[in-house]
């Protein structure tokens, strides 16, 4: 790994008095797709919120493309080129599909293909049919597509996807995996959190397992497969 796009260095995050992330450190290289694995409550969402500075780490630092983004305002983190797709999707329910996409729109960044509404509708054909519908009228799967499309409108360099396969029908999950591979082929770097090991293995190059707010495993999926005891210990399969 020559370059580093994202680096967490001994990050400690709290919710009030509860200490959630303990000296969490890992790196993501440009063009990589990394899966963040771990049980419910392991700290995956908190990790993503910490990167976005939606949860402020009390100690440690987050570096993006060599710049320290710790304690930056959330919108500045997004403007720096990190796109966040939250676990709960958080579609703007009263806004139409087109308006949801508009909120996500940001200027094009150099060195990256610019996403347009047309591209996104090709990637997610379901959305095209429902362009005028309000967010709250969409199914769970459609909302998941919309929230990814909305974030892509910001032309991010790094995409944070929090459990994209959660609560989605298996067929759609397959479709989603294909879509993610397409996104990856466009040169995006992705950090996704997953509980669905099968899904993660299709799209990701590397696995990081979080347990109790620390990284306990960081290697390839082949490596993970050759150590079934790790899988049994940290992942609920």
């Amino acid at each position: 790994m020559a370059e580093t796009m994202l680096e967490l260095d001994k990050v400690n995050t709290f919710y009030g008095k509860a200490h959630i992330l303990h000296d969490l450190s890992f790196k993501v290289a440009p063009g990589e797709v990394v899966a963040l694995l771990g049980r419910n409550g392991a700290g995956k969402t908190t990790t993503m919120r910490t990167i976005m500075q939606l949860a402020r780490p009390r100690a440690g630092s987050v570096q993006f493309e060599g710049a320290d983004i710790t304690r930056l305002a959330t919108h500045k983190v997004a403007q720096a080129g990190i796109g966040y797709v939250p676990e709960e999707r958080r579609i703007f329910g009263d806004l139409t599909v087109m308006e949801n996409l508009e909120v996500g729109r940001q200027p094009v960044r150099d060195g990256l293909p610019a996403w347009t509404v047309e591209h996104l509708f090709e990637l997610f054909p379901n959305l095209a049919e429902r362009a005028g519908n309000r967010g709250k009228q969409m199914s769970g799967g459609e909302q998941q597509m919309l929230t990814i499309a909305r974030t892509l409108m910001g032309n991010p360099k790094l995409l944070l996807l929090d459990e994209p396969s959660e609560g989605i029908a298996p067929v759609i999950v397959e479709q989603m995996a294909q879509t993610l591979l397409e996104i990856k082929a466009k040169g995006l770097t992705v950090l996704l959190s997953e509980q669905n090991l099968h899904f993660a293995r299709i799209v990701a190059d590397r696995a990081i397992i979080i347990e109790g707010g620390s990284a306990v495993f960081d290697s390839t999926f082949e490596d993970l497969e050759s150590h079934p005891e790790i899988r049994d210990q940290y992942l609920s399969v």
């Binding site: 976005m52 959330t74 919108h75 997004a78 966040y84 939250p86 958080r90 909120v103 996500g104």
Partner: peptide, 8 residues
């Protein structure tokens, strides 16, 4: 919060 996370 979501609006901020989208860079606004």
């Amino acid at each position: 919060e979501m609006v901020a996370a989208l860079g606004v």
